[in-house]
Write a protein that binds this DNA or RNA. Structure first.
Lengths: 344, 344
DNA sequence: GGGAAGCATGGTACCGATACCAGCGCAAGC
DNA sequence: GCTTGCGCTGGTATCGGTACCATGCTTCCC
């Protein structure tokens, strides 16, 4: 960039290294892939040449030949939500030491977009595919099933996984929310989640509310305070707006929100209206995000392990990719209730 | 995955499509790359064959041949911080419609790690490289300069850019913070940022504090309340801990924190101690994160445009990649002071 | 001593696309 | 009528690696 001594000087290739080291390209390839196959002298010469030329192997070319690209496709609704960012970090941490590189695709909670993104990923021939959720368009499901590589659905516990799954039951988490709030003595229990219409939907959040509803019904409690309001994407505002709507209706003693982000929004809405949490209304979130641990009052929540989902998925994939037969198709990492201040 | 009718059935290739359509592979290639070059009849047959076979081109192979991979490397400190996730989203939105795919690398605020990640990216032969910040290890700087593709440094305004830059001056943002707090009548002004030791450092945050310090000095105010405490990575906790330390020392009327996340942590620490913001202490954050707009009191902040940085970078790269001569090497998107409730 | 086995190395044929050039048929222009 | 040019098509070489097989040499063992 700075000085142009030569024309856009092509990056050195393995052939250049081999010439400089006085060996064949194959020996260079072996030195880099499995040094043990090469004599110490040749190895030293090759490594010196690599260093001298600043050679960086072209993994695209390598992948074409070996049919292993080293890519792991990871498809999530958003990265703005820290739990998916954490999952990405966990997956990366588990797989990068073995040379795999995540290829991240973002769907914006849209199944149509998921399909587009998936196609883009498939054109890179990933060695494995990780996709959030168990709801996909029929075409996407078909593409995944025929991809010919391991597929892991995460953040869910599908009845009929495409291949593998690592996550937990969002439905059961919602039922636990009902039990928890009932156990605290509440009888008028609300649930707040995003809209269930249009292209952009948070299916996992909906599952949690479905679990909540069934939990309430089984306890003989009314379920008419389960509201769907606002867009999944803007979680803070969604929580605040949904809470405003709920307060307008009145009567709720305790509220479950489908994420800690929206629970925080709801908490702030209460504060703006001068309502005290948990005295006037109890709030239970979901996910155990950092924000819930830091805010005042601290949020009670149903904790899951985003980093763990990524890490476990990575470990599972590493074993699958090395040809190990891995036993369970579905890994349930569960969740646990964490009671802090917002529920009293 | 579900049923294994045939052995791991290789994905169809362009040759398969060409046979089914009764044309040569070149015609298939042209149909997909630039349909205008192909007769309507041939095009129709090819597209039908593509559809029938579920053909997805192998961009790895295409890239090897055309020397354009369609990858854009994006190297950021973390994705957990929503501003970098937003930048990634902005870059993706700008470039994906033209077929480019971001390849995200995360450094965890470590320059050593940045170098490792950069090498991994280079092995994918990206068409362009976007890297956060202007501080890099000498080796990384060298790799970037010799990469032979456009390089954009973002979230900063380097004096001597490697190639291009899109961002703003963190130093000047810090000076603005000083002016803003002085303008509000404060004379004992503190600044809180993460540690400046070890491998993991937030250089941009340090720049902001340096700007604050100079701003205070120029106004003849003391700068002994500028503290570096806690790790850059855990921003919430860092803010809370640094605030606790500051309160232990006492005397601050107003505090600038290097991010809204840590400002929020500080705000909560105040609440836990029964201090009222802004009555007892004024708080100014940085970044204009969603959390600052939602919390109570709402955070005053120095607003930057994370999505805009990504988008502008994408637009710049598209022009560069199409061979346009783009004028300024450094694009300064600036920042602006947003006064809300936390400064009174 | 001779053959088998093992190690280190090299040669060659791909992987699946695109760049490049050549060639075909047909219409327009002189 | 013949050249010129254009639109469309196909053949071939190549991108930069790795898989696979073949080779030369050494060592070991019966």
């Amino acid at each position: 960039m700075s000085e142009d001594r030569a024309p856009p000087r092509r990056a050195p290739t393995m052939r250049d290294v081999s010439r400089l080291a006085g060996v064949s390209p194959m020996t260079v390839s072996r030195t880099l892939a499995d040094p043990g196959l090469v004599s110490p002298e040749a190895r030293a010469r090759v490594l010196a040449a690599v260093d001298r030329l600043g050679y960086v192997p072209d993994r695209g070319a390598g992948g074409l030949s070996s049919r292993r690209t080293g890519f792991v496709a990871l498809i999530v609704p958003t990265l703005t939500n820290p739990n998916f960012a954490d999952t990405a970090a966990g997956l990366t941490a588990a797989m990068r030491p073995r040379g795999y590189q995540p290829l991240i695709g973002v769907t914006g909670y849209s199944l149509a977009e998921e399909e587009v993104v998936l196609r883009a990923m498939l054109s890179r021939r990933p060695d494995a595919i990780v996709v959030s959720g168990m709801r996909h368009s029929p075409a996407a499901r078909d593409l995944l099933a025929r991809a010919g590589v391991p597929v892991v659905e995460i953040w869910d516990r599908p009845e009929r996984p495409i291949d593998r799954a690592v996550g937990f039951s969002n439905y059961e988490a919602g039922r636990l929310a009902a039990q928890a709030l009932i156990g605290l003595g509440a009888t008028c229990i609300a649930g707040l989640g995003p809209e269930r219409t249009g292209e952009v939907r948070d299916f996992r959040g909906e599952e949690r509310l479905r679990g909540l509803r069934d939990g309430l019904r089984q306890a003989g409690l009314p379920d008419d305070l389960i509201l769907h309001h606002g867009r999944a994407a803007g979680a803070f505002a969604h929580g605040a707006e949904a809470m405003a709507e709920l307060l307008a209706r009145g009567g709720a003693q305790a509220v479950f929100l489908v994420s800690d982000i929206s629970a925080f929004g709801a908490l702030m809405e209460c504060r703006r209206r001068g309502l005290l949490v948990p005295r006037d209304v109890r709030i239970l979130g979901f996910g155990d995000f950092e924000i819930g641990r830091q805010c005042v009052p601290r949020l009670s929540t149903i904790a899951v392990d985003p980093v763990g989902i990524g890490r476990r998925t990575g470990e599972l994939l590493l074993r699958l990719l090395e040809g190990e037969a891995v036993a369970p198709a579905v890994v349930d990492l569960g969740f646990r209730l964490v009671l802090r201040e917002s529920t009293g």
